[in-house]
């Protein structure tokens, strides 16, 4: 019964307008959890498998992690918002978005090792959220967190695109990664990657 009540509240919250319009906004939100968990590395993977009709979004960090009792509670907005602000509504909302699109959410975490969040979506599902602007999410996170090593892996099972701050820094020779010209270049670079990998694979990305 408690579970039903929780599902009701979750849906209410989503209907009240506090809702993420696309996957890139969910990504922004989940990456903020990693930052609050003091991660120094965040790896983001987006894999579109047309054969399986499945889009996988994985966010892996090396932050403080969660013990089992907190891990068991993160899907419940009541408990999490009351006892800790580390996770809040972001995880329940992502879970709702995944489940609405025939997918699911999986979280693995180990205290002081890090946390991995994996959301799957059925690509062709009518309620699947569009990808949104992945490049803008990554660029904004970098702008405000220049000390975090962020990497991005995009794949459509045939081609790959890889981006990592540590690679880019080799070209910068001491110029800060949050230099505005560098940031805008990063955004355009990732946008090219998204178009190359997901164009024609995800309907909303022009091929």
């Amino acid at each position: 019964m408690l579970n039903e009540f929780f599902l009701l509240i979750r849906d209410l919250v989503c209907q009240w307008g506090l809702i993420m319009r696309d996957i890139s906004l969910h990504l922004m939100d989940i990456m903020q959890n990693s930052i609050r968990a003091q991660a120094t590395e965040i790896n983001v993977m987006l894999i579109a498998d047309r054969e399986k009709d499945e889009l996988t979004v994985e966010i892996r960090d090396n932050g403080i992690g969660m013990d089992e009792s907190l891990l068991n509670q993160v899907r419940d907005p009541f408990v999490t918002t009351r006892t800790t602000r580390k996770v809040g509504l972001g995880i329940p909302m992502l879970e709702a978005s995944a489940e609405r699109a025939g997918g699911k959410l999986d979280i693995k975490s180990q205290k002081s090792k890090g946390t991995t969040v994996v959301a799957t979506f059925k690509i062709s599902h009518i309620d699947r959220l569009p990808l949104g602007n992945i490049a803008e999410t990554i660029m904004n996170i970098i702008a405000a967190n220049k000390e975090i090593d962020i990497s991005l892996h995009l794949s459509n099972k045939q081609e790959e695109f890889n981006f990592s701050i540590s690679e880019i820094k080799k070209y910068l020779d001491g110029v800060p990664i949050d230099n505005i010209d560098v940031l805008i270049w990063i955004k355009d670079y990732i946008n090219d990657g998204v178009k190359t990998i997901f164009g024609g694979v995800l309907n909303e990305v022009p091929g």
Binding site: L18, G88, M93, I180
Partner: peptide, 19 residues
């Protein structure tokens, strides 16, 4: 840029400042 800000449109705002 917490959940509330992101849902309300904070990311395009931050992007606009940078641009």
């Amino acid at each position: 840029m917490a959940t509330c800000g992101i849902a309300a449109g904070a990311r395009p705002v931050m992007n606009a400042f940078l641009e």
